[in-house]
Design a protein around this nucleic acid. Structure first.
Lengths: 143, 143
DNA sequence: CTGCATGCAAACCGTTTGCATCCCC
DNA sequence: GGGGATGCAAACGGTTTGCATGCAG
C-alpha cells in the first residue's frame, strides 16, 4: 500500500544525504546531517535536508526515530531494531537484541487498540559518560 | 539521590495542576492541561504550567512521557507502565501489561551502556479510529 | 520581611512552508 | 518547455526564560 522506494527520484542532495547517513551509526539529527552534507554541498539549505529526509522516511528508505529526547534522529538501517539512549549526553546506539514479536501479541490482549507494532528504547549511560562520571566522583572523594 | 517529593511546596496552582492531571487518564499535553486548569484558575500562565510540571517531574510526583509523537505528555501514575499511541489521532492509553524487567537484562548483555531502564510504546489504532476507518472503507466500497 | 512562585511576554529551537529560481527529463 | 527539486527566509508550534509583581511563610 505504501509508495515503493523506487518511486523516489534520487537527486544529488538525496543521494549525498543518504550516503552521509549510511556512513555513520550515530543516528544524527537533521541539523547534524545538515552540517555533514554541507561539507560536500555548501549551498544546501536546511529546508532541503528536512524535506528530503521526510521523503525518504515516507518511502521507507530510512527510519525516523521518534523516541525520547528532544530532536528527531534518523537511521539508514530500516530493519526493526532497538536503541539505547545515553541519559547524560543524549547519544544513541543500536542494541542488537532480537525484536520481541510476542510482546505485541501480549499487548494486543490487554487493549482494544489494533496493535501495529512497538517502539522500545533503553535508557542508560554510555561508556564515555560512565568514565567521566567515575572521574568526577573520584575527584569529589579526594577533594 | 533525587530530591524527595516532600521537598516540593504544594502551591495552589501546583495542587490544582496535579488534581486535574490525576482526574483524567488521557495523558494530556502541557497545553491541554493548561486549558483544563484555566477553568479553575483563569489567570494562570502557560509558563507556570510548564514550570510546575517540570518541577513535579523532577521530584517524581508525575511522569513525563517522552516517547513518539510531537508534544510531551504527562501522567500522574508514576509506577512504570506502558502505553499505546493511536497512529491516527495521536491519543494515548495505558497498557496494563506487566513490565518486562528481563528485557533490560538482555539488553545489558548486548551493549557497553549501563542500562537503567527502558521505554516501551505500542503503536496501533484506537477503537474510535478503527470505526471511523471501517466506515470510510465501506463508503469507498459502495461509491 | 524575604524569597520563592506567579503572570506575562519575549526569546528560543527545531521544524515546516511559501516562493522564486533552477535543473532534469 | 514543464514539473518537480532547490535555496532561502519567513512562519510556526511547543517550550523556556527574564523580569517585575505578588503572596506565603
Amino acid at each position: 500500500m505504501n509508495t515503493p522506494p523506487s518511486m523516489v527520484r534520487l537527486t544529488t542532495q538525496r543521494q549525498i544525504l543518504l550516503e552521509e547517513l549510511s556512513k555513520v551509526n550515530t543516528h544524527p539529527t537533521a541539523c547534524e546531517l545538515y552540517k555533514m552534507v554541507q561539507k560536500r554541498l555548501p549551498r544546501i539549505g536546511l529546508g532541503t535536508v528536512y524535506r528530503n529526509l521526510e521523503i525518504m522516511v515516507d518511502s521507507g528508505i530510512i527510519l525516523k526515530l521518534e523516541l525520547g529526547g528532544e530532536q528527531k534522529r534518523f537511521d539508514a538501517t530500516t530493519e526493526p531494531h532497538y536503541h539505547v539512549r545515553c541519559t547524560v549526553c543524549g547519544k544513541m546506539d543500536d542494541v542488537t537484541l532480537q525484536v520481541q514479536e510476542e510482546i505485541t501479541k501480549k499487548a494486543a490482549e490487554k487493549t482494544s487498540y489494533k496493535i501495529i507494532g512497538h517502539l522500545l528504547e533503553f535508557t542508560g549511560e554510555c561508556p564515555d559518560c560512565q568514565k567521566a562520571q567515575a572521574a568526577k566522583t573520584k575527584e569529589a572523594d579526594t577533594a
